[in-house]
Design a protein around this nucleic acid. Structure first.
Lengths: 146, 146
DNA sequence: AATCCTGTCCTATGGAGATAGATCAGGATG
DNA sequence: CATCCTGATCTATCTCCATAGGACAGGATT
């Protein structure tokens, strides 16, 4: 029985981020965006191992970290389940944000910006925004150059 | 003399990304966004070492990788200089995209989405967009979970 | 020429992440 | 009860990353 939906893990070897951390971050992302709710089941350790071709210990390490954070709960014989949520934003708002972001991505794509470029711009803008709100006076430019 | 502008490196220890790779990625980002152009000088190895409190070999490793990619050129006695560009999008378009993205970030912030949540949404949307264009039939949501 | 500043190379060392493989423990099912 | 599936644990090993510290090479400046 496969009662609940399960997250499907992905790996990006080029990112340089340790495998176990990628798993942790993916669960956290899914929680933030409401794709996972308390009670949902995470992929079985052995399934993740098989589909990602990684070591059981790596998955265990990720699950252990999630449990330490209080986000999940491992139940031997049953699986690993979501215990808490990180979702502080309503679904309607998220949908709206998603839709408008999709428009932006589409524009960027039209102009010729690739995914890496989009990510670079996004990171730059978010950092900019954060610094502007806290620092106020951005003494030495953020993405600036000098 | 400081003829040319220089990028200012940052480190994010929490990201899990190896230090040297962070440096490489920052240069690439700056190239994509037009913050760095051919002829610009990168921070001196010893300066980066001092400001980031890391090992010279770590900086060297990053610079060597950039040179291998054909993006930079190290000139003993002078410094390391940008040799190529990754910028395929015009500055006006980038500025426009940046401005509209800033608006989106502001909206997201208003609704209560934090930086991590924004990053999660962004990654999800970009992936979604990429899959939709290649795969075609992604019946129901991509960010779904399956 | 002498000096300084720059990038470059080298060896050795320690730590974190991932792997392999075996084993134990808790719950469900026959 | 016996069996199966699940997560959890353990030890040993391997690789990559970063560090420490010393030394060399090319160009500019005096």
């Amino acid at each position: 029985m496969d009662g609940g939906a399960a997250l499907e893990f992905r790996l990006d070897p080029a990112s340089g981020v340790p495998t176990s951390q990628q798993l942790v971050q993916q669960v956290e992302h899914a929680l933030r965006l409401g794709y996972l709710k308390p009670g949902d089941r995470l992929p079985k350790v052995r399934d993740a191992v098989a589909s990602l071709a990684i070591n059981p210990n790596t998955v265990l390490k990720a699950y252990r970290e999630l449990e330490l954070k209080g986000l999940t709960e491992g139940r031997p014989g049953q699986g690993t389940f979501i215990k808490a949520t990180l979702n502080r934003v309503g679904l309607p708002e998220l949908t709206k944000l998603r839709r408008s972001l999709l428009g932006w991505v589409s524009d960027a794509d039209t102009v010729g910006l690739d995914a890496d470029g989009m990510a670079a711009l996004f990171a730059s803008v978010v950092r900019d925004f954060a610094e502007r709100r806290s620092g106020g006076a951005v003494a030495e430019g953020s993405e600036r150059v000098a």
